[in-house]
């Protein structure tokens, strides 16, 4: 009882009124994204932290050598682990394991988020699994992405998709040499580690819908007055009457699209959303590449600079 976000009628009305005037509580316009901050941890490969306003998600990639599935001997394994702990918000309860039904809203939200990331990244073949095969049928790389949800302020899906993709692009696995059935794994100091082969970068954009007119108007009316908002924060997300998540890559391919119920939206508006999402996705892709490039610079330079510094002694030791 009472263990939920309690949003008063005043706040509800105010948020809606503000949206009608094309403003939001944090000063954005309806179709503005929040600022995306991507931070790559300097000590490791494939450890990324993404902040979308106050929403924060971290992703860590790890790889190990395992046996492939019997029915797919030429493919590696890829697993995305998304468990939302109450750490990010008491709204998400401790998962009740397999026996927990889908009846409570919290768990259903969680299932949708994890399925969405699964479909966006794994099903769309963003990671080339055949490239992970070492010895057909007996050994392959198993790549695992662990998502940690650190703070909840709406729009987990978009943030986690950015985190997973940046981490995958950044991750490097140790180099290996295969001779017959023997595999030699080289330390990262012996040989430079190898990046994963990423085929494309799918990114999610979530739209939320609001209805300034009544239910009847939404279903029967001709006005199409529904408000469409991008990248909602917590209170907006809780008040929204439906959402649509579209996953696109830079080549203008839809990887996944889901609008489950909620307000009924005219087909033409949905198409507008999709084209707008394409714009956002191309911006985000550029940003990810920029961050990765900066990080690469940082990683190459320190050793070089250290060696080139004049303070180093010139004497042969």
């Amino acid at each position: 009882m009472g263990l939920d976000y309690n949003i008063s009628n005043n706040e509800q009305q105010f948020v809606l009124d503000a949206l009608k005037e094309n403003t939001r509580l944090d000063g954005r316009k309806l179709l503005d994204m929040r600022n995306v901050e991507i931070q790559i941890f300097p000590d490791e490969y494939g450890h990324v932290d993404v902040k979308l306003g106050k929403t924060e998600v971290a992703c860590k990639i790890s790889a190990s050598i395992e046996q492939p599935y019997k029915d797919r001997p030429f493919e590696g394994l890829f697993q995305i682990n998304t468990e939302i702990s109450p750490m990010c918000s008491p709204f998400f309860e401790v998962s009740q394991g397999a026996s927990g039904g889908t009846s409570s809203r919290q768990t259903s939200e969680e299932i949708l988020i994890s399925r969405m990331i699964e479909k966006s990244v794994r099903r769309s073949n963003a990671l080339d699994l055949e490239n992970l095969c070492l010895v057909a049928g007996s050994k392959c790389w198993s790549v695992r992405a662990d998502l940690h949800f650190l703070n909840y302020d709406g729009n987990f899906i978009d943030a986690s998709c950015i985190a997973v993709m940046t981490a995958l692009l950044h991750f490097k696995r140790p180099d290996v040499e295969v001779s017959g059935d023997d595999i030699v794994v080289f330390d990262t100091k012996q040989r430079d580690p190898v990046p994963l082969s990423i085929l494309h970068i799918p990114l999610c954009v979530t739209f939320n819908f609001y209805n300034p007119n009544g239910d009847e108007e939404n279903i029967k009316g001709e006005s199409n007055g529904e408000l469409i908002v991008v990248d909602t924060n917590l209170i907006e997300e809780r008040l929204s009457l439906g959402s649509m998540t579209i996953t696109l890559n830079k080549n203008q391919e839809v990887c996944q699209l889901l609008k489950s119920g909620g307000l009924n939206i005219d087909a033409s508006l949905i198409m507008n959303c999709c084209t707008y999402a394409a714009k956002i996705v191309s911006q985000l892709t550029d940003q990810i590449h920029r961050v990765l490039k900066e990080d690469e610079h940082k990683r190459i330079n320190p050793t070089e600079q250290k060696e080139l510094q004049t303070v180093n002694s010139r004497e042969a030791s």
Binding site: N125, V254, S260
Partner: peptide, 22 residues
């Protein structure tokens, strides 16, 4: 929903060029 052009549900799980969606 009904005989309108309004979509209640849309779900796509495969890759698909954006310009074909319409």
């Amino acid at each position: 929903v009904g005989d309108s052009d309004k979509l209640n549900l849309i779900m796509c799980e495969d890759r698909l060029p954006l310009d074909k969606l319409e």
